[in-house]
Write a protein that binds this DNA or RNA. Structure first.
Lengths: 244, 244
DNA sequence: GGTAATTTGTTCGTATGTATC
DNA sequence: TGATACATACGAACAAATTAC
């Protein structure tokens, strides 16, 4: 049963908007399944007796909202549902992703040693200017890049961390090797920004798209700060979930 | 004492980037206080012996990051720190804002009755298509618009809610009048999007700026869903804080 | 209230360095 | 080596908004 919707011209609502609303409700109602291909633009156009450009405009706004995904030459598809990313004391990327029947992976983009700026020094309880390890990582779920993260560690405390991370590919295990048996997330701050050029390339995002920026501090069992992380997440592919 | 910094040409780092880093560290070090006016572009340009365009580019990246704020004719200012918005079971806008020595206010933008779409019906445990009250609000802190929220309620359960909200200006008190003595936040989902045109006008944002989108469900003391809210927050003015 | 000075915003044009093929 | 594309940097002039006198 497809809802019979007519275009209402001269109703003060642009035709492209009426079509985009129709598409939205069809998708929300599940009549176009996740990942399904939409009818060709020409078919939608003839169904509503409008020009194909009108349909294109309707589709364009939904792609910019991340609801649709248009691949040149292949067609337009209902975007896959965003990954739900629970924010809690024991957030671990790989566990979250595998819990949603997706395959996680990740790799180190780079690492360096740099002096602590005022904000990070405060968060890690080191003096400003103290040398910090910086590790840049890219996390992927089911082949789609989802987030890039920058983590800072006190170099004096964890001299062997970069090697340990390069070997294990996991902060949890790398920190174990460096004598931190467990860690928990203490505070999390969330904002949104426009994607930086370098991140856009890594995440496969168009410039001008929004990213969620999550800054958090991980502490060891005795509550000493261990890791400061700034994560940029492709907003259209992820949804943070806070349970109360 | 202002740090003496020289521009290093031919060092592989663009001049505009060196200036933007310099500005960033000056601000982080507190040498330009929050709300303070920066030297005029022309002055910074002559201080570093570069073109004004070069300074403008440095300033542009910092405005896009929300660190600076440029007003034509007035000058360029260090942006005020974002409001910290704790997400918890008892989140109340007015308490959060007054707790940070800012003056909260708000007004109702509009209200209507509309049939429940699939997602909201599920969240509010009503059948799809059931009539819902939709209330649109704008929240302001210290004269700056911070967020626009759309809330949905089951009309059958709260027929007098719009009037109660219009009178009290508070969901807490309006729900009290409708027989809900207290409510708590059950689940919160966070994403980011580009601001919609209508919201941009309300929030005083440029089109193309990111907004944090927070969707949440409030439940009454017996855990029945009462209110579904979709809030759009000016990302540059707010920071969500999740304590663990 | 009017005017000039100040400051950011916009649009031309020109030249140079850098990376890629 | 040359051709090309792109980002960077400079210069000049003017528009638009705000402030100071």
């Amino acid at each position: 049963m497809t809802t019979q919707v007519k275009i209402d011209r001269g109703a003060g609502i642009a035709v492209w908007r009426q079509i985009s609303e129709w598409l939205k409700t069809e998708i929300a109602a599940g009549r176009f399944a996740e990942g399904a291909r939409l009818p060709a633009e020409a078919d939608i156009a003839s169904r509503f007796e409008v020009n194909r450009h009108t349909v294109r405009r309707a589709i364009a706004v939904l792609t910019s909202e991340g609801i649709l995904r248009a691949d040149q030459g292949r067609g337009t598809f209902v975007a896959s549902a965003p990954i739900s990313y629970p924010i809690g004391a024991r957030t671990r990327f790989s566990e979250i992703v595998s819990g949603q029947d997706r395959t996680p992976s990740g790799r180190m983009i780079g690492s360096s040693v740099e002096p602590a700026d005022a904000v990070i020094a405060e968060a890690l309880s080191v003096s400003a200017g103290a040398p910090l390890l910086r590790i840049e990582t890219l996390r992927v779920a089911d082949g789609t890049p989802v987030l890039v993260g920058t983590s800072w560690f006190d170099q004096a405390r964890f001299p062997g961390l970069v090697a340990a991370y390069a070997e294990t590919g996991s902060f949890t295990r790398a920190l174990e090797l460096c004598g931190v048996p467990d860690y928990t997330r203490k505070e999390t701050r969330v904002t949104a920004e426009l994607v930086a050029a370098a991140d856009a390339a890594l995440l496969g995002l168009e410039p001008g798209q929004p990213v969620l920026v999550v800054e958090s501090v991980n502490v060891d069992p005795v509550d000493a700060p261990v890791q400061y992380t700034r994560t940029r997440m492709a907003a259209e592919r992820i949804q943070l979930v806070i349970e109360n």
